[in-house]
Amino acid sequence: MKADSEFLILGGGIAGLATAIALRKIGKDVLVAEAADAIRPVGAGIALAANAMKALSKIGVADAVTPKGNRLRDFSIYDQSGKLISKTHAHNPEYGNFTIHRADLHSALLSFLDEKRVLCGKRSVRFDKKAEEYTVFFEDGSSLSAKHLIVAEGIHSPIRRQLLPNSLPRFAGYTCWRGIADNTQLRIQETSESWGRKGRFGIVPLQQNQVYWFACVNAPHADSEMKDFKKEELMQIFGDFHQPIPELLQATTSPIVWNDIADLAPLSRFAFGDILLVGDAAHATTPNMGQGACMALEDAAILMACLDKNADIPEAFLAFEKRRLPRTRQIVIQSRTLGKIAQLENPIGVWLRNLAFRTMPASVNESQLQKLYHVDLD
């Protein structure tokens, strides 16, 4: 029986679409199976740091993405009253740093693929292997077969769970709300976070007079009351933060999206013969360093390089694993640690944290950023 494709990619998010584009670039036959019933413009803002832009350039789509984003030059952290804690110059002259609406990035990636090769309504349940093929079974009762399987279906991937039964998402200890506000009157231009004892509030300007914001507070896992918070409840928490935070909440025009923050404990492997984990299915991280989408895009570019150099697919997958495990592990650990620091509530701990950040030499921040941005994609 002939396989439906050479490579079956599970997941039509950023990782899955970017990987499909990268593999098509080197002549591979690719089919994408997405769990959602339709590809819709969903999500909020994300960061595309210089390493992500470098990866987008490598797979040939940077020119389509750049016009949809806002160039990020500086990132500031304030305390609850608006006093500066730290300021980082994030300008990268070669590739730049951008903020973009997730839906805009998603639509740009989707435009590079044949719509007939992106199937919707395909939520995976399990896989079987017979002879030289994998068959993936979906909730709708259908199945697809392929010679090679790339799992890009996110942190809750059932296929990863089948491969690694103990690879469960772990709660970070805080919950998050996200929204999009009208920036016509506010005219916010600075990307920032504000760290208070009651929570943390982030601001990310986007194009088309929009601002993406997020708000995080320490909370029990899956709190049923917080799930239904609207602007009024968030104003009770963040209403006494410095401006423009209260105004921004009031100017919110989108539905408010809620979710607990979680990641994956670093895995020991990504490659399983002709199966490979990528993106959040492999190395889901907390969003504190803005590297979730960036690492997914790096994955696509590096996998393209590995497959282009090695005709033996399992060997190419192992080469990818060897290159990606150390970097993704480091970022997952650093991001989780930063989140704990940013979510401190103890007054003495908050004071010491703010003092440490204020007195940290600018060269330390710059060095850390350059290390983050530098990635070998060849």
Results as ranks from 00 to 15, higher is better:
Ser192Tyr: 10
Glu193Pro: 04
Glu193Ser: 12
Ser194Glu: 01
Ser194Asp: 00
Trp195Asn: 03
Gly196Asn: 06
Arg197Pro: 02
Arg200Tyr: 08
Phe201Asn: 03
Phe201Asp: 02
Gly202Ser: 09
Ile203Phe: 08
Pro205Tyr: 09
Pro205Thr: 02
Leu206Ala: 02
Leu206Ser: 03
Gln207Gly: 14
Gln207Val: 11
Gln207Ala: 13
Gln208Ser: 14
Gln210Ser: 14
Val211Gly: 05
Val211Arg: 04
Tyr212Cys: 14
Trp213Tyr: 13
Trp213Phe: 15
Phe214Asp: 11
Phe214Leu: 12
Phe214Ser: 14
Cys216Thr: 11
Val217Gly: 05
Val217Ser: 06
Val217Asn: 04
Val217Phe: 12
Asn218Gln: 14
Asn218Arg: 15
Ala219Asn: 10
Ala219Gln: 09
His221Asp: 09
His221Met: 11
Ala222Thr: 08
Ala222Ser: 15
Ala222Asp: 10
Asp223Cys: 14
Glu225Tyr: 11
Glu225Leu: 13
Met226Pro: 00
Asp228His: 13
Phe229Trp: 15
Phe229His: 05
Lys230Gln: 14
Lys230Phe: 01
Lys230Ala: 09
Lys230Asp: 13
Lys230Thr: 10
Lys231Trp: 03
Lys231Glu: 05
Glu232His: 12
Glu233Arg: 12
Leu234Ala: 10
Leu234His: 06
Met235Tyr: 02
Met235Leu: 15
Gln236Val: 00
Ile237Pro: 00
Asp240Leu: 09
Asp240Pro: 04
Gln243Met: 06
Pro244Leu: 02
Pro246Thr: 06
Glu247Gln: 15
Glu247Met: 09
Leu249Met: 09
Gln250Phe: 00
Ala251Ser: 11
Ala251Trp: 01
Thr252Tyr: 03
Ser254Glu: 11
Ser254Tyr: 04
Ser254Val: 07
Ser254Pro: 09
Pro255Gly: 02
Pro255Thr: 07
Trp258Arg: 02
Trp258Thr: 00
Asn259Asp: 14
Asp260Met: 08
Ile261Leu: 14
Ala262Gln: 14
Leu264Asp: 03
Leu267Ile: 01
Ser268Asn: 14
Ser268Gly: 13
Arg269Ile: 07
Phe272Arg: 07
Phe272Met: 09
Gly273Trp: 12
Asp274Ile: 06
Leu276Asp: 04
Leu276Ser: 05
Leu277Trp: 03
Leu277Arg: 02
Val278Trp: 00
Gly279Trp: 06
Gly279Gln: 08
Asp280His: 12
Ala281Val: 11
